[in-house]
Design a protein around this nucleic acid. Structure first.
Length: 563
RNA sequence: GCUCCGGUGGUGUAGCCCGGUCAAGCAUGGCGGCCUUUCGAGCCGUCGAUCGCGGGUUCAAAUCCCGCCCGGAGCACCA
């Protein structure tokens, strides 16, 4: 692992962990369940989990839910976080909630008070701040431990109101960083008015982050801590507690923020946006939450590889969607079955079709084991009507040859904004090649279903896809050939199959900068300028309501878990 | 303001500790080409950084030293 060989591949493995002994590594992921996980939080989770596994150690999930008031936890989010974590492949060995461990924090507090290492401060906050800024003690500081023990009991008994007393850890009043000087360990919360979602109003004295964290990391035998660099002064604060008790502080590794360019990530912005209805939920495709990425068809391993490649340095990193999606494409390409879909359809009328034609295409060109999709298409009066993409039709010229992939070749005889007329040409792929034909995908009206694609900017595009698509399970990531990857999601109330856009090659943010011109016309309601009557009279499918069977499977399948 | 931390192509990252083989590797992106029944997938090629700026040490600096500039984080009875 050492040596100075050049990296020729993106990092696929973790660098060695400082101070790690095989079998003795304990890590923890400590979120506050006040929102769902996003790519940034995934960084701590993945590193903590993967290092624990790499060294045969233990990975603990600990909910840091000790603020019943400002960063209030929500009961439903404890489960949501665990679900996100499992999806990421980070199954915890133990799960704890700090709100259920208050007695433990109290015990250590008492011990420290008796050692003279902590005191109950009854100075008004402003007064304390004024004193400590000039390195002077609050008068309470030098009272004997017995007095503070007594005050501590009174705190617990509810004899002080909110803000009237706080337990502080004695550190160093001349520490260069005022925040480190005698930092607070416990404060009083009126849980009658602000009940905690787990323990209600059972406790009034609540530990602050540094106390609960310090005690738990020791109690749980944590050896390595991964967290954002905003916690680096906290490590410094906690070292005072460890020194007093004679404990060894874990190896703390701080890293910078990980953001996705243009992806909304801030907890408060996510919460506010959802509340105000600007986002459809935690899984709105514009968000960089894990749930949004999952719904879009981003695999957990893509996120993991991204985190590995960004590494563990303390500076912030803003990666583009392109990088994440490119990693993801490499993973989904081998497993995504191929289907035809036309989002902005125009009609092609092909005359001279000799008889019934059979289209048969592999679901995956490199993986025959995935099966095939096939359709028998009967011409009416020698004429076959197909739908193709408007942009494809626009580049066809009378006289040119067009290849309906997997089906037939035809020579274009007339082209207009309403569509194409063409005449059947015998021959297959070879003939099409030598005629320099344009290879295009198509949909037959009688063998199609309606689809609705939720794009990465949350707009919706309606279209048609070949009917076999309806036999795929929800959660499957497919490639709509020559267009993009998308994840099968659900069935819309109007019967359309709903897909979430995953990505296409070269996609950047904002995508509209690079989108083909044909996309501009179709934004939210699925334009169909060329064949409106045709589309509206279209039957959803010739097959026995595939949408319904899809819906049934969809309902029983539960949350989508990809292999 | 104070305390930490960081600055390599558009973006992310490797190298910096142990100076030369680094006018700098990889990925993404742009461009061009190829492709076995069919794909905006894949493959190949190519474009793009004198390594924040200035000075110093040295035969030699992205790598060591000093100064400056820029950016981030922290400075809560939040986590």
């Amino acid at each position: 692992m050492e040596g100075r060989e050049r990296a020729e591949e993106p990092r696929r493995a973790l660098p060695p962990l400082p101070g790690a002994e095989p079998g003795r590594v304990v890590t923890r992921f400590a979120p506050n369940p006040d929102s769902v996980l996003h790519v940034g939080s995934a960084r701590a989770a993945v590193l903590s989990h993967d290092y624990a596994r790499a060294y045969g150690g233990k990975f603990i999930l600990r909910f840091d839910d000790t603020d019943p008031r400002i960063k209030k936890s929500r009961l439903d989010l404890y489960d949501a976080v665990l679900e996100d974590l499992r999806w990421l492949g980070c199954e915890p060995d133990e799960v704890h909630r700090q709100s259920e461990r208050l007695e433990i924090y109290y015990r250590y507090a008492e011990a420290l008070i008796m050692m003279g290492g902590a005191y109950v401060d009854t100075c008004p906050p402003e007064e304390f701040r004024r004193l400590v800024r000039s390195s002077r003690p609050c008068p309470d500081r030098d009272l004997p431990p017995e007095v503070h023990l007594e005050r501590w009991r009174r705190m617990l008994n509810g004899e002080y109101g909110e803000g009237e007393a706080v337990l502080r850890v004695k550190t160093d009043l001349s520490h260069p960083n005022p925040a480190v000087r005698d930092w607070p360990a416990f404060r009083i919360v009126d849980t009658g008015r602000h009940p905690h979602p787990v323990v209600g109003s059972r406790y009034r004295v609540w530990p602050l982050y540094n106390w609960a964290s310090a005690v738990d990391d020791h109690e749980m035998g944590v050896t390595h801590i991964f967290r954002g660099q905003e916690h680096s002064t906290n490590a410094e604060k906690q070292r005072y507690v460890y020194a007093r008790f004679g404990w060894t502080y874990p190896v703390a590794i701080h890293y910078g923020r990980l953001m996705i360019e243009g992806g909304v990530l801030s907890k408060s912005e996510v919460e506010r946006g959802i509340r105000e209805g600007r986002y459809t939920g935690y899984d709105d495709p514009r968000l960089a939450t894990l749930r949004a990425l999952r719904r879009r068809g981003v695999l957990p391993d893509a996120i993991r590889q991204l985190i590995y490649s960004v590494g563990i340095k303390p500076s912030d990193a803003t990666v583009s969607w392109g990088v994440l999606l490119a990693i993801n494409r490499k993973l989904i390409d081998p497993i995504a079955p191929r289907y035809f879909a036309v989002l902005d359809p125009v009609e092609v009328r092909i005359s001279g079709v000799p008889g019934e034609l059979r289209a048969e295409m592999p679901k995956h060109p490199q993986n025959p084991g995935m099966g095939r999709r096939s359709y028998s298409l009967a011409p009416e009066g020698g004429e076959l009507r197909l739908l193709i993409e408007r942009s494809d039709a626009a580049s066809a010229r009378p006289g040119s040859v067009i290849r309906m992939m997997g089906l037939l070749n035809a020579r274009v005889t007339a082209a207009s904004p309403a569509g194409l007329e063409a005449e059947f040409l015998p021959g297959g792929v070879e003939e099409a090649r030598s005629a320099r034909a344009a290879f295009v995908h198509w949909v037959h009206p009688q063998h199609s279903i309606r689809i609705l694609v939720v794009m990465d900017d949350a707009s919706r595009r309606a279209g048609l896809a070949e009917s076999a698509l309806s036999h795929e399970r929800p959660g499957t990531i497919v490639q709509l050939e020559r267009e993009f990857f998308a994840r099968l999601d659900s069935v819309d109330p109007d019967g359309s199959l709903v897909l979430y856009y995953t990505s296409q090659r070269g996609s950047r943010w904002p995508r509209s900068m690079t989108a083909p011109q044909s996309w501009r016309s179709a934004t939210s309601h699925g334009s169909n300028g060329g064949a409106p009557r045709y589309l509206s009279s279209l039957k959803a499918s010739s097959e026995p309501s595939p949408a319904t069977s899809f819906a049934r499977r969809s309902a029983s399948a539960g949350p989508t878990m990809l292999p």
